[in-house]
């Protein structure tokens, strides 16, 4: 596997898109959190009520793990986009064929892509951990691992995004189409989720049955759902409408989707003509 990854690294390290997108991500994570930090600090200074509701800044330990994970997760599109581009490049240049002609098995080709998706997710998570440490420590709060599970949720979300990107690239084989479809899909899922949410509210009003929000169980939302906004705790509104008490169920769904994505991409790679 290390041998395969070393070859993959030869392909990736000189690719401008890789350097650009990874830098955007690293800088973006820091910038986004810094903006949120400034914003919250400002609001907290001005609005007396929030001071009463909040004990400490969301950028203090323990909340910082949750806060930074949440804001950074908006940027997970970038590594996933990179996965989409790297895989569709192979189809575009027909190097996926050449790699196999030269002696990789079809599964080896997929395996190294899966590993890359996982490594990108781990890398993104590492950036988030470092950012959280910087903010947490700079606010002068006492270091703590409490709430570190949010980092795990972030990792899960990163893996899911990258897997969705990988699958879409394998299915479409064309970079333009794959990128468009990736964005359309995320918008589509949010749309469907919204519709299901309204449906759930209606059902609750009509019959009293609480369906919660079924949209939370869709592939990308399931991994999203585990990361809630750090401001929920004092807004109090979002939480009452969207119950996140089904964490275990949402987690199960998220893991099931990952298994489905894996099996689907394997089938695609092994069974079809390249």
């Amino acid at each position: 596997m290390i041998k395969l990854l070393k070859i993959e690294w030869l392909k990736i390290k000189n690719y401008t898109g890789f350097i650009l997108l990874t830098s955007f991500f690293a800088v973006g994570v820091f910038a986004t959190n810094y903006i949120a930090y400034l914003f919250i600090k400002n609001v907290m200074n001005k609005v007396e009520v929030s001071k009463l509701l909040l004990s400490g800044s969301p950028f203090d330990f323990d909340s910082v793990w949750k806060t930074v994970s949440y804001y950074s997760s908006f940027l997970l599109m970038l590594p996933a986009l990179l996965i989409v581009i790297l895989i569709s490049n192979e189809f575009n240049y027909k190097t996926h064929r050449q790699n196999i002609i030269d002696g990789w098995s079809r599964f080896e080709f997929l395996k190294v892509k899966l590993a890359t998706a996982l490594i990108f997710a781990l890398g993104s998570t590492l950036v988030v951990i470092i950012t959280a440490l910087i903010f947490g420590l700079s606010t002068g709060s006492a270091f703590s691992f409490n709430g570190f599970e949010n980092i795990a949720y972030f990792l899960l979300k990163a893996v899911t995004y990258n897997m969705v990107g990988l699958l879409i690239a394998l299915l479409t084989k064309k970079s333009g189409v794959a990128i468009a479809l990736f964005f359309i899909y995320t918008i589509f899922e949010n749309g469907v989720s919204m519709l299901l949410f309204f449906l759930a509210v209606k059902v609750k009003n009509d019959s009293g049955t609480d369906l919660s929000n079924l949209g939370n169980y869709l592939p990308m939302n399931a991994s999203d759902g585990l990361l809630s906004s750090p401001l929920d705790q004092f807004s109090g509104i979002t939480k009452s409408i969207i119950p996140y008490n089904n964490n275990m169920l949402v987690l199960t769904f998220a893991l099931c989707y990952l298994i489905i994505f894996y099996l689907w991409s394997k089938r695609k790679m092994i069974k079809t003509d390249l």
Binding site: K3, K11, N14, T16, Y93, K94, T95, R97, G103
Partner: peptide, 22 residues
């Protein structure tokens, strides 16, 4: 097979390096 399949953004030598390693 059919067309020369290489990474467009890499040099001739780097492309051959990938093939040789595979």
């Amino acid at each position: 097979l059919e067309t020369p399949n290489f990474y467009h953004y890499l040099s001739a030598e780097k492309n051959l390096m990938i093939a040789a390693r595979i």
